[in-house]
Design a protein around this nucleic acid. Structure first.
Length: 464
RNA sequence: GGCCUGAUGGCGGAGUGGUUACGCAGCGGAUUGCAAAUCCGUGCACCCCAGUUCGAUUCUGGGUCAGGCCUCCA
């Protein structure tokens, strides 16, 4: 069973064949850390985390190398540092840490490498030098620019020609550019901004060069898969290809390109500039991270996904259903970790068809419920947990999932009410038992009676 | 203006040239002291117009609508 990936460059699904199965490389463009990440920023993280997990399962955990950068030099970071009167590192350290915490809350594994731009300025300067030497870049007016006309394949990824770009040019054409599409590799810093030494004067790197330089340094060229958001196809990834290939005589850069679709708010793209964002940092206080992860994977990664409160609620309920199955099937039985079923692999290997994989999770849940005996139930339960593990779901204790974030005092109170109700039931005082149930419902707790008394209780998060 | 996506039932969301995906919600039944959970059953759909076809939601063309990129952006 082989993985098929929709390759943006080829514009079709292609069978994934790594250059070296013992060393599979994946790179995804990471955040610029000057602010909290919003849930739209989290989509590629979760999507490529799933791919990372799938590759690890297929090729072995140690065979997969995943790089995701931290952009810690940028105009917005500089502006924030100036506004707050601090060094840029004060901003970037803080938000890089928050970013990693927030993504971990969504069940994303840490990437193998998390290179930072400021730690690789030397590599960038070297690469710019190579590009100038090869005739693909030129210094002008304190800047160094990439000469797009020197690269015949420029525009291949995004499907546009240099003529197209000039025709629809919304970009302001600087006088020092030979061609309007030429982009900055190095530029002078503005007063108050951080500066680095270079053969072309003090300044700082352009945005695109960092990924090219760090991919080469950390993963080595060419890489197997390069991923990111759909909006990075142009210009960011187009420019990365131009830089990396031209610095190496046109050699291949990445074998597969994957791009995730956008999250929308009321059908409009969620973006910082539009201001219609929901921060991950806030959302994880309102709903379990796992439910947010479920929501992000509930649509195919290339399709748009409209982010609504209802989506979160439905995601939570879907997980309730699966955790409910695990909860009932779990007590006192052999907790064997099973094999990931082929049906799950089949779905995920088909260009990460997560909605189909989720349908298979429900099919597995049904197998658990309908198992003819304890042994069969334990096996089915193990398969469901294994499938969940591959996808980053269902690893919590089911009781903990349903009991939620209740504090110790509340827990004590709930348990004492349950005890009181058990006494009333034992005495067949149904009126009293029902009164206590009503009290608990009022507090937001559902009580589930089993054959031997109250089997479990659930906190119903009303805010969801 | 150039380039590119998408349009499926109350909601989310797959898929297919002819047979109910799946989940949530609804309805009926079983079960339950009550309830929940669970199980069984069930209603509801494929943007519009033409074409190809024995047959199209699925293929082709046109249209309408929505969205994205071309500027920082996941």
């Amino acid at each position: 069973m082989t993985l098929a990936i929709y390759d943006t460059l080829a514009r079709e699904k292609r069978a994934f064949v790594p250059a070296d199965p013992k060393r599979v490389t994946l790179y995804v463009c990471g955040p610029t850390v000057y602010n909290y990440a919003h849930i739209g920023n989290a989509r590629p993280v979760v999507v490529f985390d799933l791919l990372f997990r799938l590759l690890r399962e297929t090729y072995g955990a140690r065979a997969v190398l995943y790089g995701r950068n931290i952009t810690d030099v940028d105009d917005k970071i500089n502006q924030a540092a100036i506004d707050q009167g601090v060094d840029i590192s004060a901003i970037t350290e803080k938000f890089a840490a928050i970013y990693n915490e927030d993504m971990a809350a969504l069940g994303a594994l840490a990437p193998t490498f998390q290179p930072r731009a400021t730690a690789h300025i030397g590599e960038m300067v070297d690469m710019i030098g190579q590009l100038i030497e090869a005739g693909h870049a030129y210094p002008a007016d304190g800047h160094v620019l990439f000469d797009t006309a020197s690269f015949a394949d420029y525009g291949q990824l995004s499907g546009r020609t240099l003529d197209d770009m000039i025709a629809g040019a919304r970009v302001e054409v600087a006088t020092y550019k030979r061609n309007p599409a030429d982009f900055v590799l190095w530029k002078p810093s503005k007063p108050g901004e951080p500066v680095w030494e270079s053969p072309w004067g003090e300044g700082r790197p352009g945005w695109h060069i960092e990924c090219s330089a760090m991919i080469e340094k950390v993963l080595g060229l060419p890489i197997d898969i390069h991923g990111g958001g759909h909006d990075l196809i142009f210009p960011h990834h187009e420019n990365e290809i131009a830089q990396s290939r031209c610095a190496h005589g046109g050699a291949p850069f990445a074998h597969y390109w994957m791009h995730n679709g956008f999250l929308t708010m009321d059908t409009e793209k969620m973006s910082k500039s539009l201001g219609n964002v929901r921060l991950v940092h806030d959302l994880i206080k309102e709903a379990p991270g796992e439910a947010l992860r479920w929501a992000l994977l509930s649509a195919h990664y290339r399709a748009p996904l409209d982010w609504t409160g209802d989506l979160i609620q439905q995601s939570k309920k879907s997980l309730d259903r699966l955790y409910g199955v695990l909860q009932r099937a779990g007590s006192g039985e052999l907790d064997t970790e099973g094999e990931v079923p082929d049906t799950i692999f089949a779905a995920l290997n088909d260009d990460l068809a997560t909605p189909r994989a989720m349908a298979e999770l429900f099919a597995l849940a049904k197998e658990v419920e309908n198992a003819p005996n304890k042994g069969a139930r334990a096996v089915a339960r193990g398969r469901l947990i294994a499938a969940g593990r591959l996808m980053g779901f269902l690893q919590a204790d089911p009781n903990a999932w349903f009991e939620g974030q209740v504090d110790e005092a509340t827990r004590k109170r709930v348990e004492s009410l349950i005890t009181a109700r058990a006494d009333a039931r034992a005495a067949k005082d149904w009126a009293e038992a029902d009164r206590i149930r009503a009290d608990l419902t009022e507090l937001g707790f559902d009580i589930l009676d089993g054959p031997g008394g109250t089997a479990s209780w659930r906190f119903r998060d009303i805010s969801l």
